[in-house]
Amino acid sequence: MSAEREKAQAGAAVAEDRTGAVPQSIPALMAWALWLELDAAERYRELADAMEMHNNREVGALFRKMETIEGKHAESIMHSMEWTSPPPRPRGEAPWPGFEAPENVAHEDVHYLMQPWHALTLALKGEERAVRFFTALANESTVPAVQAAAREMAAEEQEHVDLVRAWLARVPPPDERWRDDPDPPRYLD
């Protein structure tokens, strides 16, 4: 991640937050927005499963909560668009950079001994990426309706940012030995 990006404040979108074509209609925009949420929900579900399997129930519960939140956000998009089921994933390059939707927490960023502080930090970054993504989209779009919808999405994501940030303030930061495990990995098959 570039130093410029590190410095970027939530909402202060830069060119790196966007790629590809700007959706030209509300349904096109909202289809991508929906899949952004569905991807995130699926990822949180995978992470929650993994944490539960590895007896990290606290973080598992947190990821499960995040899954629910992203799922609800997806539902509200469906409701607003009067979709009864998700439209197929739009074909072609996604409008966000990188391999995954902005809200997704990458698999390789989690650890079986991670603490809620880590989980919330990762979630916060995801929400911030989402804010920047929608903001950048609003800035680039020339279609007023799309601009407005993107800004609305950005605002919603900003609410999530604030929510997660508030949670984060309530959990203790980990000490430097958080990932120490006195036992070696186990043999399986």
Partner: peptide, 15 residues
């Protein structure tokens, strides 16, 4: 549910 280590790339491959 998979027994893979959290963070393992195989979760994504399954997906």
């Amino acid at each position: 549910k998979p027994i893979w280590c959290p963070g393992c790339g195989d979760y994504s491959v399954l997906s």
